[in-house]
Write a protein that binds this DNA or RNA. Structure first.
Lengths: 91, 91
DNA sequence: CAAAAGGTTCGAAATAATTCGAACGATGGA
DNA sequence: TCCATCGTTCGAATTATTTCGAACCTTTTG
């Protein structure tokens, strides 16, 4: 899980899901030009790590954070990670 | 930081430092046979990520967790990470 | 002073992760 | 039905991490 969230792009995805499920197409990457296979791979890493759920929804995919599971396994971690500031330290 | 702690060996090192500074030689790896250069590299990753401090101490090296800095930058994260259970989920 | 202890740094080789295009599968609309 | 949409999976190429030995540096001990 730590590994999955250690990538900025993946962390950004997790942040977008904190307010509720999103269809994959609504989930934006910082660079809108990355091919869908790459995006799909990012999701797979998050899914494999147990961070995210990915259920079929018509021809779309509904993504959602696995909050309960994660909070049970790593209490406080998700909140801490999601609320951490972006960017590098100011020092 | 998340990346640095996403490796089991490095996480284990961080855990050993939570109770106070340790000299490098007292900091044990799960496999005692890894060469010192590898161990040194693990430390470097932790140091570079700002997780750990590494000051010269005679001919030894004193390692310490940078708690204050980390708590300031990622409130709650370190505690959550360090208190998380080991191993894979039981499901 | 010489040698041992405790670590770092530097390459090079081995592993692992990321990226992309192409081929594929399922669903929904014309 | 046919085709466009939304995604996944596969394989190959690129890139990043890890790992190790050798060379090196500093401090302590004999």
């Amino acid at each position: 899980m730590l590994f999955a969230l250690s990538d900025p792009e993946r962390l950004a995805i997790a942040r977008q899901l904190v307010d509720g499920p999103l269809d994959m197409a609504e989930c934006h990457l910082s660079n809108p030009d990355v091919p869908k296979s790459t995006k799909s791979h990012l999701m797979k890493v998050l899914r494999t790590a147990g961070v995210v759920r990915n259920e079929a929804n018509g021809r779309a995919r509904r993504l959602s954070l696995r909050r309960e599971d994660l909070d049970a396994r790593f209490p406080g971690l998700l909140d801490a990670v999601l609320s951490a500031e972006d960017g590098a330290p100011k020092s």
